[in-house]
Amino acid sequence: MTTTPGTLEDLHGVRVLRCTPDGPLLDGEQAALDLIGDAMGYDAELVALPVERVADEFFRLKSGVAGAVMQKFVNYRVRLAVVGDLSRHLAESSALRDFVHETNQGSHIWFLADEDALAARLRP
């Protein structure tokens, strides 16, 4: 059963599950597993999740939600791109700014401003 409304798209040769802004929040390990299961059901390599679908606790690093969620995506080898305006969250925490910067240096989890940034990131 699919829990994530979305569409499958091929973006520069990468199968992307593009989630809609409405739907369950990414608020912990079970929500991450649901998204990963949906991605696998679509045979998607990457989940593009609007920032509106990410729970506030995720952005409070001390909560541990971000680490737990990210570990699930890495373990199951499904990439995650959180797409949208993070400025409100980034303004509240220098640790989060550093975390986002470091995470974006990798190839598995990204925080991107918009769809154009996602397309640019995936462009060969």
Rank of each mutant, 00 (worst) to 15 (best):
D38C: 11
S93H: 08
G23M: 06
V83S: 00
G13S: 06
G41K: 03
L46V: 05
D85G: 07
G106L: 08
A68S: 14
T4Q: 12
P50H: 09
G6Q: 04
F99P: 02
D38V: 04
L33G: 00
T2M: 13
D56L: 14
E52R: 13
L25H: 04
V47A: 09
A66R: 07
L90G: 02
R77C: 08
F58C: 06
P21G: 09
H101P: 00
F111Y: 15
D43A: 15
P50V: 10
L80T: 09
S107N: 14
E29D: 08
V65E: 05
E52L: 11
P50M: 10
L90N: 02
D34R: 13
L25Y: 05
R88P: 00
V51S: 13
L49A: 02
L96I: 09
G37I: 04
L25P: 00
P24A: 12
A119L: 06
D22K: 07
P124C: 03
F73Y: 12
T4V: 13
V78N: 01
V74A: 14
P5I: 04
F58M: 00
D56K: 12
R79L: 01
G37Y: 01
P24M: 12
T103Q: 12
R121V: 04
S93M: 05
S87K: 13
R79N: 10
A31G: 12
M40I: 09
E52N: 08
L86S: 08
G64H: 04
E45Q: 15
S107F: 11
D114L: 12
D22S: 12
V82M: 11
V14E: 11
Q105T: 12
F73T: 06
